[in-house]
């Protein structure tokens, strides 16, 4: 057990009364997410990987009927969990968040404007990055050039669905992107519509974790596209995803009342 493992186990099991701890663990030189039971040896826990545990948590949550789960959470994980809890897919009382502050390199990688978790347990809080250089560049471009830029980027897509599978806030049972109407079975790269549809669906829940960009095999700057969409949402509705209480504007009427079938609409 390394120092970090000891510290995490102490915080999760002794101080906060968790039954499970979800963290990244190194075994035989490989790092993988693992669920550590109370009393079990925590092992060599690692937190230096820019990897989100919320996705793993969403997958195993239905299989853990009892007990409280402690998760190592960055600020973006925290926001993702807020979105998930708001849609009644998880119970807040069953989760214990262990705040992890991102290193300066990780903040720079995500161009993150909100990197500090509400409670820092591990790591040191770093200053946010104010703007995304690519977004500034795109804003100064003409419309034709912007279309040309995104065309050349989207050409690299090989429809691996990595952006969808690794997204912590993609939680629909039936994904619209798997419908052949919008993404034909044949044809790589998929059309422009693939990325636009994804943008639309993420518009009220993207928490800018950057997992899509990191998992993109083609290296498409998807995080910049998300950031642009989020900026639009903020300007139009004053809404930012990841808030504990605020309901998405897509789920309310123009007067702000909750729509009748207020369940999560994708």
């Amino acid at each position: 057990m390394n120092e970090l493992g000891k510290k995490l186990a102490r915080i999760a099991f002794d101080e906060r009364g968790a039954d499970y701890l979800l963290a990244m663990r190194e075994e035989h030189g490989n790092v993988a997410p693992s669920m550590i039971r109370k009393g079990e040896d925590a092992g060599d826990v690692r937190v230096d990987l820019p990897y989100q545990l919320v996705n793993i948590l969403s997958n195993i949550y239905p299989w853990v009927p009892k007990g409280r789960i402690a998760v190592v959470c960055r600020r973006c994980d925290e926001k993702a969990l807020n979105e998930i809890i708001k849609r009644n897919l998880m119970d807040r009382d069953r989760l214990i968040l262990i705040g992890l502050a991102c290193t300066r390199e990780q903040v720079a990688l995500c161009r993150c404007s909100d990197p500090v978790p509400s409670k820092v347990d591990i790591g040191e809080a770093n200053a946010p990055v104010r703007e995304d250089p690519l977004m500034v560049k795109l804003d100064s471009m003409s419309q034709q050039d912007r279309l040309k830029f995104w065309t050349s980027e989207f050409r690299k897509c090989n429809k691996c669905f990595g952006c969808t599978l690794n997204c912590p806030v993609c939680f629909c049972d039936d994904c619209v992107l798997e419908e052949h109407t919008f993404t034909p079975e044949l044809g790589i790269p998929p059309s422009f519509a693939f990325h636009l549809v994804r943008s639309m669906h993420m518009s009220d829940k993207c928490i800018e974790c950057g997992e899509c960009e990191r998992s993109c095999a083609g290296g498409i700057p998807l995080l910049t596209l998300r950031k642009m969409a989020n900026r639009d949402m903020k300007r139009m509705f004053g809404y930012e995803a990841g808030d504990k209480e605020k309901v998405s504007p897509l789920l309310t009427t123009l007067e702000g009342k909750l729509l009748e079938d207020g369940e999560h609409v994708c």
Partner: peptide
């Protein structure tokens, strides 16, 4: 359907903005 067009009134402006972002008028 009482609130159908409320949904549209919110969705379409977002769709327009997203199109603007990728360079379509």
């Amino acid at each position: 359907y009482l609130t159908g067009n409320h949904r549209t009134a919110k969705r379409v402006p977002i769709a327009q903005k997203l199109l603007d972002d990728v360079g379509v008028d």
